[in-house]
């Protein structure tokens, strides 16, 4: 949450600064299978966010003492490029924020990947934020989910993520950077669409019970659109393959 000082108006004529309605997503575009070396990959643009996700493995878990003889382990690295933000030069390497995001992202995929299929193995999920404009952890999870499917890793579901927030009395979907900096609440969530279970939930700011219920509904209702774009990205890989032949 930003300071109340110099707080910009986040709503004009009942619309958000970028002209969106309260429950409207920013434009979302996903391309799957764009990196040759990775087992699976995805490039995502979500508003001004640009995100690359790649999956390596399943492969022998290293170091060996990390291996689990009953199932695969997931390693996850979320990282922001030093040039990704409008302000300053970011430090290279993961900071404490990135380590926390990597941890909760890893836990999302531990829920849906069929780890028991690959005992003794590791699956690596790399998320690189090339350009950031708010909601990058949600964008990273949505991209990594497509990359895992593109890698042919067996999963119970294709997870998506998006954040909800609050501007004054209004609950809003998919908060961008300026809204994130000055809004009254921010809540990134990851959802397993087959049962609407919550796999990631973080929140700070302030939500009444009623506002929270409204926010969670918005996130679940947005699933249809996001999941559709994820599936289309995966279908396109094979359509394009046929055309190449």
């Amino acid at each position: 949450m930003g300071s109340s000082l110099n707080k910009p108006e986040l709503l004009k004529n009942g619309k958000r600064l970028d002209g969106r309605d309260f429950a409207e997503l920013r434009p979302l575009k996903i391309d799957a299978g764009i990196l040759k070396n990775a087992a699976g990959s995805a490039y995502l643009e979500w508003g001004n966010n640009k995100v690359l996700a790649a999956v390596y493995g399943p492969k022998e878990a290293m170091p060996r003492h990390m291996a689990d003889p009953t199932k695969a382990i997931i390693k996850c690295r979320y990282s922001m490029a030093p040039f990704s933000s409008i302000e300053g030069h970011g430090r290279s390497g993961p900071n404490r924020r990135a380590i926390e995001i990597s941890k909760v992202t890893k836990e999302v995929f531990e829920n849906v990947v069929m780890l028991e299929e690959f005992p003794g193995n590791e699956i690596d999920v790399f998320i690189e934020i090339l350009q950031s404009d708010g909601g990058t952890r949600a964008a990273g999870i949505t991209a990594a989910s497509v990359a895992l499917a593109n890698a042919g890793v067996k999963m119970r579901d294709l997870v998506y993520a998006v954040s909800a927030g609050r501007i004054g009395e209004h609950v809003v979907l998919d908060v961008n950077m300026i809204e994130d900096n000055y809004s009254d609440a921010d809540m990134p969530m990851a959802i397993s669409p087959r049962n609407s279970n919550v796999l990631l939930l973080q929140m700070d700011g302030g939500f009444s019970k009623q506002q929270f219920k409204e926010a969670i509904k918005m996130v679940i209702d947005a699933g249809k659109e996001i999941s559709g774009i994820q599936r289309a990205a995966l279908e396109n890989v094979y359509k394009n393959k046929k055309e190449d032949d």
């Binding site: 836990e107 809540m187 397993s192 279970n197 919550v198 939930l201 929140m203 700011g205 009444s208 019970k209």
Partner: peptide, 14 residues
């Protein structure tokens, strides 16, 4: 109001 939330680990909540 609710001020902050954090879900952790691989399980899920409805």
């Amino acid at each position: 109001v609710i001020r902050a939330m954090q879900k952790g680990l691989k399980g899920s909540f409805s």
